[in-house]
Design a protein around this nucleic acid. Structure first.
Lengths: 185, 185
DNA sequence: CCAATCTCTTGATCGGCGCTCAAGAAGCAG
DNA sequence: CTGCTTCTTGAGCGCCGATCAAGAGATTGG
């Protein structure tokens, strides 16, 4: 079994491609970003990308995985020190820049298994994190799962639609009331 | 000002194109549906479609407008006789067949004004309908708007994600609790 | 009646897309 | 040196949405 020329060079170039892809995906969205454009910014030809990634969706999934990993670990740390409200607002804020990609994730998940897997993992991570918080707050156990789902859908909805700041604040307020264990009384 | 050759022929052919487009869009989704394929099923050439519609997004918006119009008037009638729960379940059920298009609507809304307009009108129609129902049920007025938005996001979320039947039922149950005026006590 | 005008349809074509293929360069192993 | 693997590339495929110029057909004003 022959060795790699340079293992470093391999993963390095792969990372460069991912970096270029991430920049252009975030700036212009999935559809308007062509493999050729990504390859030019990465300093390679389009075909090289197809050697590292089996297709555009797989490259997209790899980019998502990185973004999500950073986000989830940040949220995981925050959840220990900040309140639910603060974290909710932080999520909405820090996801704003990836707004077009959030819609794309759902679109491509229907087509690409790679994207669907990343998408599912993301939901599971965030929702299990929220589940722990709710559990510790004394939330009625049986209602935790569906209520988490509702929260998750509301957050996605807020990110996917144009909503005025005032309306957003009202929605978050209502959502927090739903997530409050006081409701049981 | 010269007359049309046949006004009837004009709107008829336009309708034929919309019908073909609707069928294929619903069967295969937006992306996989090409103008050429629609044109073949409608018995014209691709260019003819571009005479009736300024682009693929505008054709898509026209198709959506028809689907939505049928849906909204049906829901409007139902809201007078059926309960909120029944209508909610009916919405989820009757939208199932258009699931891939729901995701597409959001994706194209970011790109096409025509699709965005149709999308906004749809939200306004459904949400004002729900607003009337909540108002009549004695729901606290100040909370109606944000809660409607939440309901709307949850319905969209349920349609956009793979959710088991059991989980869906739980979520609907919690959503109905949120929409119940009894919560105020 | 005829030329002008408007409505509608079409074939040809464009640039770009995601992706594939075959060829070959560059390194390592026996 | 030979063979094998890793990586890179130019050429090209089929398809896409969209445009353009040409023209057919009906209707109109003169």
């Amino acid at each position: 079994m022959p060795k790699n020329r340079q293992d470093l060079d391999n993963s390095l170039k792969k990372q460069m491609i991912k970096d270029s892809a991430r920049n252009i995906f975030l700036a212009d969205g999935y559809e308007k970003t062509s493999i050729t454009r990504i390859s030019k910014q990465a300093g390679v030809t389009a075909n090289t990308i197809y050697w590292y990634f089996s297709g555009k969706d797989e490259l997209f999934a790899a980019v998502l995985e990185e973004l999500i990993s950073v986000f989830v670990s940040a949220l995981s740390q925050r959840s220990e020190t900040y309140s639910l409200e603060e974290n909710l607002l932080w999520m909405l804020e820090s996801f704003q820049f990836a707004k077009p990609l959030i819609i794309t994730v759902h679109e491509r998940s229907a087509i690409s298994d790679a994207v669907a897997t990343v998408h599912n993992n993301f939901h599971n991570s965030v929702e299990s994190l929220l589940g722990k918080v709710l559990n510790e707050s004394g939330f009625e156990a049986a209602r935790i799962k569906p209520v988490i789902r509702i929260a998750s859908f509301v957050v996605e909805g807020l990110l996917m639609h144009e909503v005025s700041i005032k309306e957003k604040q009202e929605i978050v307020k209502q959502l927090l009331a739903i997530l409050s264990p006081l409701r049981d009384k």
